[in-house]
């Protein structure tokens, strides 16, 4: 009988990796999660505390999946504090995926913070198709740069390259991820831009791409309760991030009035991005 991905299953954390002082990767055995596509998410239950959508991180262990969490609110802090042997609940993977055309020869991936998670998964798939890949890792400061070593390892041997930007210039290129983008699109021709990270960053990347007529795919985030298209909490304009996304293309992004402008609070009130 096929497994119902909606039914919650428990997973035991088998390994943790501290990425920075506030970012941690949790690895656990989960066959369904290990097969998730780039852009999909798991609903992760932290018993008696929260249930939160988390992008699926690559794990090198067969049959394992991982999530990378930055401690921020109640739920993410509790997840961050979990250790080897602790249990979490899982539903999913849910949502659509980044799409790759076999016509592509060179693509640009731009991620900020834990937004890098789906992009690493995507980068692995892209390099397998012999498409060249440039990954921009954006961070505020040197201490917040994550996944650099890992990305450099599999983007070596002519498969691609990694560019690190920091807002304060403490490491790599000084400036934002979109500054890094402007520089690299002046030097190379790309077929497509993939992005995930803070929405203001993605909006900027979308606008630069539009000027250059570069197609974009962006993985968006909204507050979610159900993950399966029932509650409506994650709506952005006429779309639901959980079912119609998380990945949206240039055409959809250009029709969104709320992209980079507004989001909904837990009670459904529309708030403006500052």
């Amino acid at each position: 009988m096929p497994i119902d991905i909606d039914l919650m299953r428990l997973a035991r954390i088998s390994e943790t990796v501290m990425e920075t002082s506030s970012v941690k990767t949790l690895v656990f055995k989960d066959r369904l999660g290990s097969k998730a596509s780039a852009g999909q998410f798991l609903m992760v239950w932290i018993p008696r505390i929260e249930e939160i959508p988390m992008s699926v991180m690559v794990s090198r262990r067969e049959g394992h999946a991982a999530v990378t969490v930055k401690k921020h609110g109640k739920g993410t802090t509790a997840l961050f504090e979990m250790d080897v042997g602790d249990f979490i609940g899982l539903r999913g993977p849910y949502g659509n995926r980044f799409t790759i055309s076999t016509e592509f020869t060179n693509v640009l991936l731009i991620g900020g913070g834990t937004g890098l998670v789906p992009l690493l998964r995507l980068a692995v798939n892209i390099t397998r198709l012999n498409i060249r890949c440039t990954l921009i890792i954006g961070a505020r400061t040197k201490d917040e740069v994550i996944f650099e070593e890992y990305a450099r390892k599999f983007l070596s041997d002519g498969k691609g390259k990694v560019i690190v930007t920091t807002d304060d210039g403490s490491y790599g290129l000084k400036g934002t991820a979109s500054d890094g983008m402007v520089k690299t699109i002046g030097e190379e021709r790309y077929d497509c831009v993939y992005t995930c990270g803070p929405e203001i960053m993605m909006k900027k990347i979308f606008e630069i791409s539009k000027e250059q007529s570069l197609p974009v795919q962006a993985s968006l985030e909204r507050y979610m309760k159900c993950g399966i298209g029932i509650c409506g909490s994650c709506c952005i304009d006429r779309w639901l991030v959980c079912r119609d996304g998380t990945v949206f293309d240039s055409n959809q992004l250009s029709r969104m009035k709320e992209f980079g402008m507004a989001f909904r609070d837990k009670d459904g009130q529309k708030l403006q991005y500052k």
């Binding site: 119902d4 909606d6 039914l7 919650m8 239950w45 505390i49 929260e50 249930e51 939160i52 109640k74 739920g75 539903r91 309760k225 159900c226 399966i228 029932i230 509650c231 909490s233 609070d265 837990k266 009670d267 459904g268 009130q269 529309k270």
Partner: peptide, 28 residues
């Protein structure tokens, strides 16, 4: 406005059956 309860608020039980306690979250 009401924020409702913390997640999990919606639990799929299989066979097109669901359990929820959203807590009447709404924008007012």
């Amino acid at each position: 406005p009401m924020k409702g309860y913390a997640n999990p608020t919606i639990v799929p039980l299989g066979n097109k059956t669901y359990l929820n306690a959203v807590g009447l979250s709404n924008p007012g």
